[in-house]
């Protein structure tokens, strides 16, 4: 990830996403996923791990970026925020893998600017299994709002919850999924 490449565009997309612009958020996540893939593939190559592990990390990082986006301060640069999350997730991965961390120059990442756009690799995560790990109410709300694309009021009617309850449940559900994704690795 190169700090200067497209900081203004990415930051504008992020800020629109924070305001609730779904299209901007989608574009942002698509853009970031190819950057993250380039970063994680490069890092994992050095320790002999393949594209599936890289895709796991891409998805874990995207999930983290999404569920923790409230921690981005729009007055600050956006790229360092993303980079810090990606780096944190990579270090966390190494700690769990107990790979020999000392041999890895993890700071030395500026040269990796390649964006791998394939997006064809599947991670080891299974959406159905992730969903199965959620509490029934939460699963129902995520299914309605996030997978079936129902509006919040439609989902509220379907799940028999209030609209604000649906929003809170979906929010908590995504956080729970982020946890499950992280635990999937260990």
């Amino acid at each position: 990830m190169n700090v200067s490449t497209s900081e203004p565009e990415l930051r504008a997309l992020m800020i629109s996403g924070l305001d609730g612009d779904a299209a901007a958020h989608r574009t942002l996540l698509e853009n970031l996923s190819s950057r993250l893939r380039g970063y994680f593939t490069g890092q994992l190559n050095r320790i002999g791990r393949g594209p599936v592990e890289a895709e796991d990390l891409v998805q874990e990082a995207l999930m983290a970026i999404h569920t923790r986006r409230h921690t981005y301060d729009p007055a600050q640069l956006f790229t360092p925020w993303v980079y810090a999350i990606a780096r944190y997730k990579f270090v966390d991965y190494l700690r769990r893998e107990k790979a020999s961390m000392r041999d890895l120059p993890i700071e030395d990442t500026k040269e990796i600017t390649t964006s791998d756009n394939s997006g064809q690799v599947e991670s080891s995560l299974d959406l159905k299994r992730l969903m199965a790990g959620l509490a029934p109410k939460v699963r129902q709300a995520i299914q309605a709002v996030k997978l079936d694309g129902l509006s919040v009021s439609e989902a509220a009617a379907q799940c028999g919850m209030s609209e604000s309850n649906v929003k809170v449940t979906v929010h908590r559900g995504l956080k729970a999924m982020a946890r499950l994704i992280r635990e999937n690795r260990s």
Partner: peptide, 17 residues
């Protein structure tokens, strides 16, 4: 899971922060 699936899930019915 493909990453596109996850992106779909995350950006559907996006709530403002």
């Amino acid at each position: 899971m493909k990453t596109d699936q996850l992106i779909n899930l995350l950006s559907t019915n996006l709530e403002p922060v």
